[in-house]
């Protein structure tokens, strides 16, 4: 099975961080007051100034040796959710992306002096890394897929459905993340810098109707699920 070497993707232009997404992560949806909106706007500005976007990825063919098992050629993952999600694909991009440690430093700086701003930075940071992932998927994966007349499907991360966070250990090792983008895992498999994402992006022959990552997840109770009633 084909396995590509690890590539990197840096982004030096300013990230577009969505206000609506930031408010959603802050837990107040569309019902923000003027004060909250201004808090969010300041947080977005701070995150834009502090962000340092780096990503690394690889492309590999996949196979399904048995039900609920995905074989990537160099590793096998047991997960019903991931299996269901990638069943329609022949290959996959595996990536890790971060907007950098300075966001954590901002959160650290404000968590005592202004927890509301720390919360807003936390939210803007989450929106930033998601926006960076969107960019990576559109600029690299979708374009590469289009060349072969194929399409990307929504990304799927550890923690979605039954896919264990432990899987990130294998991803971080395979992509050599610490070296490539400075990403590390805690013993509990949380990522540091905290505003980081690892995910699988399947390549399919069929274009899926939705580009929405929340729809891929079976956790319908999630408070951050798009379309959920906040």
């Amino acid at each position: 099975m084909h396995i590509s070497p690890v590539c990197t993707y840096a982004h030096s232009a300013q990230l577009n961080i969505d206000m609506g997404e930031t408010l959603r992560y802050m837990g107040c949806g569309t019902q923000a007051t003027e004060e909250i909106a201004s808090l969010a706007a300041r947080a977005i500005e701070a995150v834009q100034a502090a962000a340092s976007c780096k990503a690394c990825y690889m492309h590999c063919e996949i196979a399904f040796p048995q039900e609920n098992v995905v074989d990537f050629g160099f590793m096998q993952i047991q997960s019903a959710g991931l299996y269901r999600h990638l069943k329609c694909c022949k290959s996959v991009y595996i990536f890790a992306a971060t907007v950098g440690l300075e966001i954590d430093r901002l959160i650290f700086q404000y968590k005592h002096s202004s927890p509301s701003f720390a919360l807003a930075v936390q939210a803007a940071g989450a929106a930033a890394v998601e926006s960076y992932c969107d960019l990576l998927c559109a600029e690299v994966f979708e374009k590469e897929a289009e060349k072969q007349k194929r399409h990307t499907i929504p990304r799927f991360s550890a923690g979605y459905d039954d896919l264990s966070l432990e899987v990130q250990k294998q991803i971080v090792a395979a992509l050599d993340c610490t070296r490539q983008i400075g990403l590390t895992l805690t013993d509990g498999c949380m990522m540091m810098p905290s505003k980081s994402v690892t995910a699988f992006v399947g390549i399919s022959d069929i274009k899926m109707h939705t580009a929405e990552k929340c729809s891929a997840c079976s956790n319908t109770e999630c408070v951050f699920r798009k379309g959920s009633d906040l």
Partner: peptide, 9 residues
């Protein structure tokens, strides 16, 4: 919402 609670605090 939470941010308002915090800002008021």
């Amino acid at each position: 919402f939470l941010p308002q609670l915090l800002m008021s605090a």
